[in-house]
Nucleic acid binder design. Structure first.
Length: 334
DNA sequence: AAGCCGGGGGA
DNA sequence: TCCCCAGGCTT
């Protein structure tokens, strides 16, 4: 792994935050961009929020970005720009939970705290044949206690790296038992339960939502607004949004009617572009982009009219980015 | 204790 | 499709 042996707490922290629920191949370019742009935690702390969100754009779980900024500023202001080495002090920083605190404490300061992530849960549940659900409260307690007991106190950092590497390369979701050096003592292997471990009890129900984005452009500017509600994509930007519970099935007649109610009159034929659906953790977003050039500037909209250049510096969710970023047709329109 | 938060890739 | 990813915060 590219970060092997890294001791700089800023770099370890940054990479751990970026890699939370994120594959290495997906997150590593972002890590390198961040380090290049902000080589020290002080420089990150001094950055403008919008610039950091723009750098984070596309990574998902955007509260991580908000917490990243917050913690960088706490480290700058309360810890003289150096990460604390005490486990509980690390744990108290925003965006850092049990896993990340143990990772920083053991990798950077060689303290005896066992990491428990998806890899570790898989390895422990299989090797010891534990069928308690890993997402139950008892399960979490049981596994973190067991992990702590297994920890090699002589080299906690190296032990933590090793068990995660093992889970990532051998004891994978679909494991390579044939190559496994622990096969002989693995309870799951010997009782033919590799396929059912680890056990999870909760399954996520996904909610369907329909987003119609009206892309208003007037002269060389486009209307955008920032998402502030307690909902997905907080702090990111978007176009004018109309949400429905079912497929609005837009056609030109329906749009004309909708615009008329809002006292908006297009100067030319509108364009309807079905969006590519976006699957999130708890919901599926479907929708449309409807391009409109009004005759006069609609006054009722609460937001900003920005030029193409200004829009480039704002962070948008991937659902919108896949639309603004791709084709020339849409770029010309913007 | 349960629900919520993105986006991508592999089987 | 479904599952998983070097998880954490809010209610």
């Amino acid at each position: 792994m590219p970060w092997k042996g890294e001791k700089d707490a800023y770099k370890v922290w940054l990479s751990e935050i970026i890699l939370q629920q994120t594959r290495v191949e997906q997150g590593w370019n972002y890590y390198e961009k961040f380090i290049q742009q902000y080589p020290t935690v002080i420089q990150l702390a001094n950055a403008k929020d919008e610039a950091v969100f723009k750098l984070w754009e596309g990574l998902g779980y955007y509260t991580r970005c908000r917490n990243l900024l917050h913690t960088a500023r706490v480290v700058r202001d309360n810890y003289n720009g150096r990460f604390p080495s005490d486990y509980n002090a690390i744990l108290n920083l925003k965006g850092i939970g049990n896993y990340t605190a143990a990772a920083i404490a053991s990798f950077c300061f060689n303290q005896p705290y066992a990491v428990v992530d998806g890899n570790v849960l898989r390895v422990l549940s299989r090797f010891f044949g534990i069928e308690n659900p890993i997402d139950s409260t008892e399960g979490k307690k049981l596994f973190s206690k067991l992990a702590q007991e297994c920890l090699d106190a002589a080299g906690p950092g190296e032990y933590n790296q090793s068990i995660m590497d093992f889970g990532a390369t051998v004891c994978k979701p679909v494991p390579v038992c044939r190559q496994c050096p622990l096969q002989k003592n693995c309870i799951a292997f010997n009782t033919n339960k590799v396929g059912i471990l680890p056990v999870k009890e909760k399954s996520i129900r996904k909610k369907e939502r329909w987003f119609t984005y009206f892309v208003f452009s007037y002269k060389d500017k486009t209307f955008v607004q920032q998402r502030t509600a307690k909902d997905i994509w907080q702090n990111l930007y978007e176009f004018y949004l109309e949400e429905t519970l079912t497929d609005p099935a837009w056609n030109h007649q329906k749009i004309k009617h909708w615009l008329h109610k809002k006292n908006i009159f297009p100067s030319k034929e509108t364009v309807i572009i079905p969006a590519k659906k976006q699957v999130l953790t708890h919901q599926v977003i479907h929708g449309y982009f409807i391009l409109i050039e009004p005759k006069t500037l609609p006054s009722a909209l609460k937001g900003a009219w920005l030029s193409k250049k200004e829009i480039k510096h704002k962070a948008f969710p991937q659902f919108i980015h896949q639309f603004t970023g791709k084709t020339n047709l849409q770029l010309q329109f913007l």
